[in-house]
Design a protein around this nucleic acid. Structure first.
Lengths: 199, 199
DNA sequence: AGCAATCCTGACTGAACGTTCAGTCAAGTC
DNA sequence: GACTTGACTGAACGTTCAGTCAGGATTGCT
């Protein structure tokens, strides 16, 4: 058990992989590159991980978890539908801006529809959107929102919160926005979304 | 010059590349796969195109052009700011839903920040968003919209119109939406966006 | 028919990459 | 001191793939 003295070699390998995958992309990174980047042999990586893909898998799992926490909070947490959706929005915008290379690592498998992780990630995304939709539906029933299509609204909210994260992941800090600030971004999205589905 | 008798071999190669790149992804497709898929030799592809990347480049150019046409129309065309933005929105939603594999081909280079096409595509996207921002700014000055940050609003609109396209490109026809219909989608986005920036 | 330009192919190459494996080394156990 | 275990390495193997080359077929022109 690694107790002190910094991160274990296993974790260092994962950190190097995250950095390289995030910068160059999975396919463009050789296992030897990762090895060199953290000063170990290629073989050691295979000692710790079964294959190259399992490295990606570990990263995706870790990255997903970061976002899933906020989703669970929004779906099952306390507060009115509006409060919960707002909490979700602010949390995702903040996380997306804070973890650019994670976002990039998450985006990549999605653009490879036949890849092994694509289905898994898609399932997670669907689950998130369905969760949002059910909160929106709850709000509609309570008379808090106008009677829109909950699924469509959820999808739009999801798209909105990810737009800034995507811009960050693309190394385009200010695609259009004059100021890149978590609060400003989230405020605007909240305003846009809730005025759109207001009664 | 090929005049009749179907598409030229050159174009057939490009079509096969589009299909395969769209389904499996650039890196997962070997030049030999493309050759086999349209019944020619590998060498012929190198006779018509300088290298594998130039195939992707040709596809990206073609795909970008499809969207750029609507952008120019929205920016320089006739009508009030709101009318032009609405035209842009409806056109992009429709194109995105109609050309899924093109969207997927456009997404991939973006997720590879150090790739050669990334910068080019990013420039196109920035240009589109800046164009939207200037139309929004125009609308604000005319008192048509509330005084929001034009760049931020443009980015959000861009994110909204691309959300559905992305969902389609991910082979997830109904991520959250109960009905996948161009008009329903565009109507909702229009509603969301313009009520959000209404005075 | 003869000729030249264009279109196309099979066979091949050099390099890169994922993966494996025999073996080293230090630390701990009996 | 003999033995075991976990961490780690250097060198190599097999495969895949982008790109090349020398030449064959086809087409169009005179």
């Amino acid at each position: 058990m690694p107790e002190s003295g910094g991160p274990s070699t296993r974790e260092r390998i994962l950190a190097c992989a995250e950095d390289l995958f995030g910068r160059k992309g999975y396919d463009a990174v050789a296992v030897a590159d990762i090895a060199q980047s953290c000063g170990v042999s290629t073989a050691l990586i295979y000692y710790h991980y079964t294959d190259k893909e399992s490295l990606l898998h570990a990263l995706v799992d870790r990255a997903s978890e970061v976002f899933d926490v906020h989703t669970r909070d929004a779906l099952a947490g306390e507060g009115s539908p509006r409060e919960r959706l707002e909490r979700f929005t602010r949390a995702w915008v903040a996380e997306g801006l804070a973890h650019e290379s994670l976002v990039r690592i998450l985006v990549r498998p999605l653009s490879d529809p036949e890849g092994p992780l694509s289905a898994e990630l898609l399932a997670r995304i669907s689950h998130t959107i369905e969760g949002l939709a059910s909160v929106i539906a709850e709000g509609i029933e309570a008379g808090e929102f106008a009677p829109v299509d909950p699924g469509l609204a959820a999808e739009c909210l999801f798209g909105l919160v990810n737009t800034r994260a995507a811009a960050g992941a693309l190394n385009a800090p200010h695609l259009g926005a004059a100021v890149v600030d978590v609060k400003v971004n989230a405020d605007f999205i909240v305003r846009l979304f809730f005025s759109g589905i207001a009664r």
